[in-house]
Design a protein around this nucleic acid. Structure first.
Lengths: 233, 233
DNA sequence: GTACATTCACTTGGCAACAAGATACATTGT
DNA sequence: ACAATGTATCTTGTTGCCAAGTGAATGTAC
């Protein structure tokens, strides 16, 4: 195990320093095993982990190649402006697709943070953020029907929640006590974000309030692919 | 590969929901392989990944057991108070050990951000943060000798940098444009933080200035174990 | 010469058999 | 009766062999 970890370390640093950048082909498992005087299985495990980490990909019969790494996008996390506005400030071509809008069963935590009764209806609206057609974040908004009665039918059409709120008379937004966690993608997340299993995700959970009335507008959970961003706070 | 990922997903959710909590022993590779109708190697790979992720540990001849998970400590990231002060606010028993204080060779990025000449001397001071004797973060401060002439001899004795700065007449501190990245531990990091290879680390990089003179006091790089904290920003 | 088929060398993927550690239990010697 | 030892059978760890994909070199018929 220690040998595998050493190899993984070594290969990552070589990949980052660009040793393989010329042809992008890594040495075959057999050759690397001979070079480091370890059984091929050790090299194999190292290569498999590098695949899970998104650094390389392997093709049976051909070999292993370094995966083109994503460019790092600076992202401002402290948020009283919307994601749409954040991205407009930068020069990236980005896009939002609403992928679901459905009522959720009663959930104590969500309902409490939205400050609504248990007989209220709460919808979760999932919007996928894409940059150059690559999914990089999933933005899930939990919204109560009592606050926005038309949310069920409006939901699928919304691209910017903040814009939607403004159209309904809420002008200034505030979010505090955002909590941040590092998680690994579930099968669903991997499918949606098209990432391998060991790409850590940054999960930001926050509450959006109207600054004037202090009313809770939405409970938000955003998961960002950590390999696409450098965050600024 | 898909089968392995499915198993990993399934087992993580079972571990989190506490299915194995009674005896903490997981089914043997052979039994699980039969249950899911997959070759043992698939179960093996899944178990190996769960080990790297820190969820379980395996002992030859005995079996595989769920690893006791760390308690999540809420940590306020926005920082004009020191780590020491942050921890004092909470009720945790924490400790700081200075593990290195040494001059670094010239590094353009560091020297530029410290706003010092290339013939200056810059020291990096590494302080390990422990909670209940478990290392949870490594705090590395880059300090220029031109700013703090006695830093080389003082360094090893410092537990709170902010306190050190105050003793030298700097009262108010500010840090902005902190950048945040998710990285995996190097061998050195793993050794220092006593974590397995797939524990993501949260790396926060920032610049500390004296608010009055706007002078740069230190360049700071902190790496936190992501499995110990819930961050609040 | 050219088009096609075959072989061969090299790659990664997968698996079955074996090795080694742990434990419970039966066996044996005193 | 009791302790030491062997043994059977679990467990995880390791290894070596072969399957399968790829592509270039080689052979072959026309």
């Amino acid at each position: 195990m220690a040998e595998k970890n050493f190899l993984v370390d070594h290969l990552i640093s070589e990949i980052k320093s660009g040793t393989f950048q010329s042809d992008k082909k890594l040495p075959s498992e057999h050759i690397l095993a001979d070079q480091f005087n370890v059984p091929r299985m050790v090299v194999r495990k190292a290569y498999e982990q590098l695949q899970d980490l998104g650094f390389i990909y392997s093709k049976q019969g051909k070999g292993s190649y370094v995966q083109e790494s994503k460019k790092q996008i600076p992202l401002i996390l402290s948020g009283d402006i919307s994601f749409t506005e954040k991205m407009n400030e930068l020069q990236f071509s980005f896009q939002t697709i609403t992928i679901f809008c459905e009522e959720i069963p009663y959930d104590q935590k969500i309902f409490q943070s939205l400050e609504v009764e248990s007989d209220d209806k709460v919808f979760k609206i999932g919007r996928l953020r894409l940059i150059d057609d690559f999914p990089i974040a999933l933005h899930t908004s939990f919204v109560a029907k009592s606050t926005f009665p038309e949310i069920e039918s409006d939901g699928p059409e919304i691209t910017s929640m903040f814009q939607y709120y403004r159209q309904r008379g809420y002008v200034e937004f505030g979010s505090n006590n955002s909590t941040l966690n590092v998680i690994f993608p579930t099968l669903f997340d991997r499918d949606i974000l098209q990432c391998s299993s060991l790409i850590p995700l940054l999960q930001v959970e926050s509450l959006c309030r109207d600054k004037r009335s202090n009313q809770v507008l939405e409970h938000t959970v955003i998961i960002y692919r950590s390999d696409c961003f450098t965050y600024v706070i």
